[in-house]
Amino acid sequence: MVFKLRLIVQHLFFVLLTYGGRFGFHMGFALPCFSCPFVMGCGGSCYLLSLQGNWWGLQMALANWGTVMGLQALYYLGLFVLLTLALNKFWCGWICPFGTLQDWFTYLRRRLGIREAQLSWSARDRLKPVKYILLAYMIVVPLLIAHAGLHYDFHLPFCRSICPAKPLMPLFAGSTRHLALDFTNTVTLVFSILSVAIAGGMLVGMFFKERFFCLFCPMLVLIHLLRKISPVRFEKEVGACLGCGNCRRNCPMDIRDVHEQKTDKAVLSEDCMLCMTCTESCPADGVLSVRFFKWRLFSSSRDYVARRFIKPHKAGSVKVKV
């Protein structure tokens, strides 16, 4: 079962990326997922830190073109590109520790039988540009620090003021310090207030809406830029789709494109995180498939749906009051 395999992989990477550093395991500073570097002893660092960082960021590469420091910035960018090409959105749906944390909230809500909050189509569409704005924010502010005299207190703008992983993920390492407000000056205070407030809001959002933070995640945009040259493919046999809508309804990201696509084969959309929930719930044989180069990793089928969604029958287990 794909969802069980995904659960295992997610939890394995959660442990590795949260505690790996304590055992000498570290996957570098260019991971295409929210493996938060503010977690003491983490096993890898999110590339967004490198992207914004004063020493490794884009502004450093531009300002020091051809120097060792500039090359180092390019090295992290290259590593990020390589890792993204290799696994593309699998980083989001299968590896990202912050994604796993969100899935725990969803699991809890489902266990409690609480209904998921549903966004209207127009609200969902209006949220789409937010991640681009956040990406621009984390690129422009370091450039302003480097070239326009913006104060250094604005450094790491996304991590320090927006990203909910920064205050929340260190809790798993026993650290509550990122929940504290920083009264050093107005900028740090505003940043820390924003950070804690957003984290609080995200906690509520994550409970009522599956993968709530991913709706705003700028990493999705970066990964999506490389989809055309990545060997990871998500395809739809458009001529065989019955339009049942299971893919759309079960998608944690409320993606409509897969269901609505009637002409193009490629259906890996910007918000997709390759969790394969849609493929698992598609009852039409071979309509949705995930490929790596020419190899088919997983494909939809009626048989799979039956195994996934029908519980083993227990005689006399059903009692309906008449």
């Binding site: 489902r110 039988g113 019955l242 299971n246 009852p283 969604f309």
Partner: peptide, 10 residues
């Protein structure tokens, strides 16, 4: 047609 595949069990 199709199949009833509820991920949400509310």
């Amino acid at each position: 047609p199709g199949a009833v595949c509820p991920e949400e069990n509310s």
